[in-house]
Simulated scan of single mutants.
Amino acid sequence: MAVRHPRYSKEEIARRGDEIYETQVRPQVETGNYGKIVAIDIETGAFEVADEILTATGSLFKRIPDAQPWIVRIGHRAVHRFGARSLKKTI
């Protein structure tokens, strides 16, 4: 497996990733995918949805070998669950 190196700072990856997720990806994936992982290429906006990080990023790298991924857990503030509060509305 090739070693991948980021071309952007952590801050720039986060800024671009959040912007793409909120403006382009979220409206397409939020319904019916609560808790799943979305891997987004911050350069192209291409994305993959899966149950696990490695599956989502692996699929993204198959499509775009040089992708610069940003990972989001749909409906959550954090990818990993360390007691973080969900964004899902409760009734």
Rank of each mutant, 00 (worst) to 15 (best):
I64E: 15
A67T: 02
T90K: 14
A39Q: 01
P6D: 07
R85S: 12
A2W: 05
E43V: 09
V25Q: 05
V49W: 08
T57A: 09
Q28S: 07
G45M: 00
R7Q: 13
P65L: 10
D18R: 15
G35H: 06
H5F: 05
T31H: 11
I40L: 09
I13P: 01
Y21F: 15
G17I: 03
V49N: 06
D41R: 05
A50C: 02
Q24S: 07
G17Q: 05
H5V: 08
G45F: 00
I91Q: 13
P27F: 03
I71H: 07
R85I: 12
A46L: 14
K10E: 15
R16S: 06
S86M: 04
Y34T: 10
A67V: 04
K62P: 02
V49L: 10
Q24Y: 03
Q68K: 02
W70E: 00
P27G: 10
I71L: 13
L54E: 11
H76I: 00
E11F: 07
F47N: 03
A50D: 09
K62L: 14
A46P: 04
E22L: 14
E11C: 00
R26A: 13
D66C: 05
I42M: 07
D41P: 03
T23F: 02
M1F: 10
Q68N: 14
I42H: 04
V72Q: 13
A78P: 00
E43W: 02
D18M: 14
T31V: 13
P69E: 06
Y8R: 09
E43Y: 03
E48W: 00
A39S: 10
S86V: 09
R7E: 12
Y8K: 11
A78F: 01
H76N: 09
K89N: 14
E12M: 13
G75M: 01
R73Y: 11
G32A: 07
D66P: 02
E19A: 15
T31S: 12
V79C: 00
Y8M: 14
E30D: 12
S86K: 10
T23A: 00
T31F: 11
G75A: 02
A56W: 05
T44Q: 05
W70P: 00
F47Q: 03
G17F: 01
D41I: 01
P69T: 05
I20A: 04
I42F: 08
E12Y: 10
G75L: 01
L54C: 06
G17W: 01
E43Q: 14
A2H: 07
E52G: 01
I64V: 15
R63N: 12
G75W: 02
A78W: 01
F61G: 02
V25P: 08
A50L: 02
T31M: 11
V3N: 01
G17V: 05
D51I: 03
H76A: 07
K88C: 07
